[in-house]
Design a binder for these strands. Sequence first.
DNA 1: CACTAAATAGACAAACCGGTCTATTTGTTC
DNA 2: GAACAAATAGACCGGTTTGTCTATTTAGTG
Lengths: 204, 204
Amino acid sequence: MQTTEPSHLTREKILDTAQSLFQSQGYSAVGINRLCLDAGVVKGSFYHFFPSKQALLSAVIERNRSQLMDELKSTSEPENDGRKRILAQLSAVLASAEEHKNASGCVLGCRLGSLASELAVSNETVRTASTHAFTEWQELLEADIEAGIGSGSITATVNPKATAVCLLAIIQGMSTLGRSFNDPVMLAQIARIAVKRLLPVPAH
Amino acid sequence: MQTTEPSHLTREKILDTAQSLFQSQGYSAVGINRLCLDAGVVKGSFYHFFPSKQALLSAVIERNRSQLMDELKSTSEPENDGRKRILAQLSAVLASAEEHKNASGCVLGCRLGSLASELAVSNETVRTASTHAFTEWQELLEADIEAGIGSGSITATVNPKATAVCLLAIIQGMSTLGRSFNDPVMLAQIARIAVKRLLPVPAH
DNA sequence: CACTAAATAGACAAACCGGTCTATTTGTTC
DNA sequence: GAACAAATAGACCGGTTTGTCTATTTAGTG
């Protein structure tokens, strides 16, 4: 009980590697052999921890979801206003894009969106998990919009739910365009317009 | 000269099938054998018309681009106002989502976006081609916004270029969320907010 | 130390991958 | 019909795919 089991370090390495490879190359393009090689793990170990590649995928998606929610909440938590919390979330998205660009030369886009776009149509399990994660995200945005309206930083004429969904769509669009154009500056431009138009400050 | 060469019908069948399979299952998940089987074509014929799977991919992307641009232009051409042209384009996007949902049970999303999201990071050829297509689309939107401003149907305070990119991001986000949520109604909601906020009518 | 379960190791298998190759059929032109 | 190119046909190839299997090592517990 006093230490984290060292055996599970292998499992974590597999998950880390899979998370990274799936996001940059996609699920179908990554083989188990390649994955094990990159993770420094042997095939016997992989199939000891995961019954199948599909099971690994589900674990990766759940990990993506929980990590992303933690990050979004932790970056927006310090802000006391709903509007500022959303700005902080968008800044985190942009910072992540720039970080990947600097580290690997490529904007990688959204962890959830990339896999969802590739697999949701042909894999109902992935589709359901992705939808669940997106819904959680949307509810976070919606709560922040409502709080922003309450505190007077967002015009009361905006519909919180519809606006949250629209914001989520913009973020996912930024992911797709980011992967293609590979240009963080373009993403910042999109985010700027989105905030300006979707979250107008009240006239006074 | 008097008839279209019947030989090229095979090539067209291959392209049609590939276009459909790539959009629903992704590029990596579709094998040549499966493709030939679905197209009713034998492997010798496939490699007679296409030197490789990658070459087929390039042809499919170019086809996606040109078909999409034709559709967007033809649906917006009858409208004489820039704002109405964009509304017509969004209606076409929504109609396409509903049509796929009714026909196959699945919202398939954007032809360009799905492949771009899957492959742009790991395939520079695809990335360049996708970027080219997206840029063309963005310029179309930008021209319509400028026309709308000129004719007074869109407030002059909007930045045509930035707004066009933002609109494109929303459409791509609709694609990703559409594939995941599989709900055309949600997409319509997003489009409604996007138009309302990004393309405001001038106060008078 | 003895016993047991977890983890590691990697050879192996059947199916499938993209792609090649040789034949044969089809269509066109003289 | 002869000659030639385009298209079709599918057997075949080496490599890779996901997943299995047995054996061995490691770690924990009495």
